[in-house]
Design a protein around this nucleic acid. Structure first.
Length: 271
DNA sequence: TCCTATGTTGTATG
DNA sequence: ACATACAACATAGG
């Protein structure tokens, strides 16, 4: 379930472990979530380390530890499609899809992911690793300007706008449901070529990208509660779903390899 | 059996 | 080199 705001919420699931040392670690060394990292090294170094802080950016999380010798270490988590973080009581019995468990005296911090599209990364030292610092600046930061949006749309001119919104290099944290929500609010057809948006559409798109990100973070990011019925979100997967604005039937199709959902009554293709 | 799933990445093609 | 399209990754559930 993880896009921008879900990731921010799920990050906080490990908050009960802040300030506490890890006493023991369980890893599924052969799990695909460790591709590109050495799970044995991770397990060795994080034993007796203390979790000191965490952060979320785009769809990724970073957990910082202080090792017994004072060294800093960073654990990166990407949830992929089905990744989860939970904090479980002491004595927790691991399940099949639990690939990394950090055991503390009073709890177990669990990463599970049955599909294994998620990813665990690990780095030692005080500098933040490249896989963290390379994440694009947040949509709600001053770096995300109308000019930056326009320039990006121009460079992706022939591609349908929907898959363009999924590009993390410019829209960090936007995923399939947020992209559909944004286009629905901005009244732009998901197949509209990115380079063919009018000035008015670009303005609306900019506003809705920021608006959906802000509202998602302030609601889902705090409680994980589903957005209200006035959003596209609760209707996009239901059979016979209707647009909350026009009450007309929603349409669904594969666009750029993902299922897009839109309201034909308010999102029309134009030259 | 076949289809779907809130994601990324490697490869082929233009 | 760059933009675009698409298969592949792995698993559960309808």
């Amino acid at each position: 379930m993880p896009e921008l705001a879900e990731v921010e919420f799920i990050r906080k699931r490990w908050n009960p472990g802040l300030g506490h040392p890890v006493t023991r670690i369980l890893v599924h060394e052969k799990a695909g979530v460790f591709r590109g990292t050495d799970p044995a090294l991770l397990a060795k170094r994080l034993r007796h380390a203390t979790l000191v802080s965490s952060a979320a950016a785009a769809k990724q999380m970073l957990f910082r530890f202080t090792l017994a010798d004072g060294t800093a270490a960073d654990l990166g988590v990407h949830l992929g499609m089905t990744g989860e973080l939970t904090a479980q009581p002491a004595g927790y019995t691991p399940l099949k899809a639990d690939h990394l468990i950090l055991i503390q005296r009073e709890r177990a911090l669990v990463f599970s992911d049955f599909r294994m599209f998620g990813r665990i990364q690990f780095a030692l030292g005080p500098e933040f690793p490249a896989w963290w610092t390379a994440i694009a600046p947040p949509i709600l930061s001053p770096a995300f300007t109308p000019a930056a949006l326009s320039a990006f749309l121009a460079r992706r001119a022939r591609a349908p706008i929907k898959p363009v919104l999924l590009m993390q290099e410019r829209f960090p944290g936007i995923g399939n449901w947020m992209a559909d929500e944004i286009l629905w609010r901005a009244a732009i057809h998901p197949r509209q070529p990115a380079g063919s948006l009018t000035a008015a559409e670009q303005k609306n798109l900019y506003r809705e990208i920021r608006g959906v990100a802000r509202r998602a973070l302030s609601t889902i990011g705090e409680t994980l509660a589903d957005p209200p019925k006035s959003w596209l979100f609760p209707h996009r997967w239901e059979d016979g779903g209707r647009c909350p604005k026009t009450k007309t039937p929603l349409a669904r199709a594969d666009i750029g390899g993902r299922t897009a959902c839109w309201s034909p009554a308010r999102q029309k293709l134009h030259p």
